[in-house]
Design a protein around this nucleic acid. Sequence first.
RNA 1: GCCGGGAUGGUGAAAUUGGCAAACACGAUGGACUUAAAAUCCAUUGUCCGUUAAGGACCUGUGGGUUCGAGUCCCUCUCCCGGCACCA
Length: 823
Amino acid sequence: MTIKTEYAFKGIESKWQKHWKKIKLFSADLSKYKNKYYCLMMFPYPSASLHVGHGRNYIIGDVVARYKIMKGLNVLTPMGWDAFGLPAENAAIKGNVRPHVSTGRNITTMKRQLAQWGVGYDWDKEVNSSKPEYYKWTQWIFLQLYKKGLAYKKKAAVNWCPSCNTVLANEQVVDGGCERCDTKVTQKELEQWFFKITDYAQRLLKDLDKLEDWPERVRIMQRNWIGRSEGVRIEFTVVDSDKILTCFTTRVDTICGATYMVLAPEHPWIGELIASAPNKKEIMAFVEHARSESMIKRSQLDVEKEGIFTGRYVVNPINGEKIPLWIANYVLMAYGAGAVMAVPTHDERDFEFAKKYDLPMRVVIDDPESHLEVSAMSGAYIDDGIMINSGGFDGISNKEAMEKIADYMESKNIGKRAVHYKLRDWLISRQRYWGAPIPVIYCDSCGIRQVPESDLPVLLPQDVEFKPHGESPLKTVKDFVEAKCPECGKKARREIDTMDTFVDSSWYYLRYLSSKNNNAAFDSKIADRWLPVDQYIGGVEHAILHLLYSRFITKVLYDLKLISFDEPFGNLFTQGMIVKNGAKMSKSKGNVVSPDDLIKKYGADTVRLYTLFIGPPERDAEWNDRGVEGAYRFLKRLYRLVVDVVEGKASTDESDEDDEQNKDLTRMIHATIKKVTEDMERDFHFNTAISSVMELVNKIYLVMGDKKVITEPVKKAAKTAVILLSPFVPHITEELWSMMGESESVFKSDWPDYDRNILQAEEITIVAQVNGKVRGRFTVALNASEKDLKDLILEDDSVKKWTGGRSPKKFIVIPNKLVNIVM
RNA sequence: GCCGGGAUGGUGAAAUUGGCAAACACGAUGGACUUAAAAUCCAUUGUCCGUUAAGGACCUGUGGGUUCGAGUCCCUCUCCCGGCACCA
């Protein structure tokens, strides 16, 4: 071939991108699963176009895929589109462009951008969650959950704009108002579909222990989100009533300090309990007020605690004491039983509330350091201590009392140990158009009926009128709403809610393996062979919801015996954000860096190299346009190096290879292979991998010298640099690889090995410290003995200057590294 | 408030097991090449003291501790980022 002496990236990049397509570099044969490696990147929402921050995710994935291909694995690296969702629908309402049109357009743009980056995928397996051939199976999965009793309907509060007369998603509520008309958003109870993820709370928690290769912080976040706590459920009888109120506490040791009880404003028994209260109206007014302010307001910052006395009393079962029953805004209906035994002396919230309403307090756990007096307390005492005022339990530690009291209550049948979780069921229905229709039908005589599997998919109509106001546009589509009851055949009505897009994304990793299968969501056999995913890569923003939902759906499918693994993702890597001027890249902030211009100016390899070199990939990084120049400079330098090596005069002097410089270079080749391989295998610290190859390149230039003497080690080192860089900068390295006479793609060659024996030089430099301060350096033989070191170093003049020639107190030797002379 | 993560030169960062702090880059300054510019190459570049130099002292957010030796381990405090947040 003819060699261009200048790095002309334009021709090089398009040439090799075409070549990879031709040789099907990224096509995985699913029937060959022996050395399978499933490399998965979180599939994107098709937004208008990508910026360099998005690119980081795909580039990291591409590096991993290319490296694993070179390691000889059968790599599957598919890509698809999480295409349903709000932005496309909002664009439709605003701009008169139908969601499937705008989505399709965005996908085209993004595919072009991905290709430009040189990121490779097996496009034969592409999925698009908004296509009927995909959402048919999302609906099928819904039906499987429904049949199992894991999908159910109940009333739940939604955000409601009274002016637009419509449901709002949380993202559409801005500062408590409607994003379109600013009207104050209220809460409205509507029938909603839920998945019973709470049935899986314990397993989702326990199996986190199995996911050892997940980042610890993600596991902690999931653990906190699931929020398991152990305690006791206690029954309090209501005085002059047949009602029994149940409450849950994790601090049963404080039960004798319970001086009142509190109900959530949403508690269903309130009406009945206050029916005969003289100030019934006043109480109901408070309850209404508290309920309407719930959710949004209550989840914002600290809300002043407010409450009202019901006029009722309940009996504390442990001591028969009558305590007042209150209603207060700080009690949540959704957790426990919506009722709380209040112990103001040992709970911050109860303390604050009791102070405000002047409720009684009693210390039951004493501070072992200094005796507690209620009148002197300025806050609750929540630490451990010694039991007092608790009848037969006095004198023991509260930890011990927890167990004793729980035992006692269970034996007397007035309480029972229980476990509670913060995790709530997954609300999956959306009053929105651009999502997978929920496949159920309402019949006046038969009730809720599932759409028969043979009738799937329930097609989302395309011809829909988008009006700026109102409910889901589906309501206006007569053909869609009108349906026949699958049971009795009578006229019935179709569900108009669609599914949360998290449902679509909770199973897509299965669909890639059977993307063209029209008879099933996935093929169990193929799934069992290829899953779990070997490496999952994505942003931390999905640390909780997406990953938890995917784990849940996988476990459900496992229980249905459709798959034989119960965790979807083996390794997880969460990459950091790329920020500019200290902020996340976004159009509104105007700090978006588009890859298109950069690629035009410097080429994709430069953008890739800079993105990878910017810092450790799990950390956030600041984008710096000038840094890109540096990456470009290095690639030009690399290109010239190979040109020199290929065109330069080979050394004729055989002694060259024995000279120290060349020996050093040979050692460095092996050290660099070791370093890069370890960074690839360990923690994806590509920044240090790249810097070590830069060092190798610098060394090659040094050894070649001005005369450009091409010795064997120089040739070998240049070739090694090229192959080690190939996963990061695939185009230029392919070009250089072929310039060096290779006929096959660099990705078809084996990843190099290193030789441990060559790594060590026979002479090394050892550092001499006196009292911990560096005072000299000595070249000594490898593994020199302590005696030899003493003889050499203690007699040296520059060291004697600091020791005064006296014999040291201690002589510490760290082999082949350092000695410390302690005077 | 609770739970994570972080703080190292002018900048991004490195230091893998407690063993030479600042590798590799960016930027800056000076120089070579050039009519000139770009590109490229060379040199210097943590701070302070020292006229230059030789040399020395000090440096990993703060203060303390363990150790022959601490960016790394332990305790205290400050600030920044992320998650959760009345979960009884």
